[in-house]
Amino acid sequence: MSGTGDVTGQVADCLLGIEMELRKLDMWAVERPPIEAFDSTEPFCIDTLAFTQWIQFVFLERMKLIVENGHPLPRVSGIAPMAEEYFRGRQESGRGLVQELEAVDQLLSGS
Rank of each mutant, 00 (worst) to 15 (best):
I35G: 04
R32N: 11
I18H: 01
E42R: 14
R23D: 03
L25C: 09
I35M: 11
C45Q: 07
L16K: 05
M20R: 09
I35S: 06
E31H: 11
P34F: 08
E19D: 05
D26Q: 14
T41R: 14
E42M: 10
E21R: 02
S40N: 09
P43S: 13
L16I: 00
M20L: 09
E19L: 04
L25H: 00
R23S: 07
K24Y: 13
A37G: 06
C45H: 11
E19T: 06
K24R: 12
R32Y: 04
F44T: 08
E19V: 02
D26W: 07
V30W: 05
E36C: 04
E21C: 10
P33V: 07
E31T: 15
R32C: 15
C14V: 07
D39K: 14
I46Y: 09
W28V: 13
E42C: 07
F38C: 03
P34K: 15
I46Q: 08
G17D: 00
S40P: 13
E19H: 09
M27Q: 11
E42T: 05
S40T: 11
L22E: 04
F38W: 02
W28P: 02
F44V: 06
E36Q: 12
G17N: 03
W28Y: 12
D39T: 13
G17F: 01
I18A: 02
T41V: 10
C14D: 07
K24G: 06
E36V: 06
I35K: 12
R23V: 05
S40K: 12
S40L: 11
L15I: 00
E31P: 02
E19P: 02
V30S: 15
C45I: 04
A37C: 15
E21A: 10
I35V: 12
E42S: 05
S40R: 10
E31N: 10
E21Q: 12
K24I: 00
L25V: 08
D39A: 15
D26G: 06
I18N: 01
V30L: 15
V30E: 08
E36H: 14
G17S: 00
L16Q: 12
D39Q: 06
T41N: 10
I46S: 10
C45R: 00
E42N: 08
P43Q: 06
L25I: 00
A37V: 00
A37H: 11
A37L: 07
P43Y: 09
R23Y: 10
M20E: 07
P33I: 01
E19Q: 12
D26C: 08
K24P: 03
S40D: 12
T41M: 13
I18T: 07
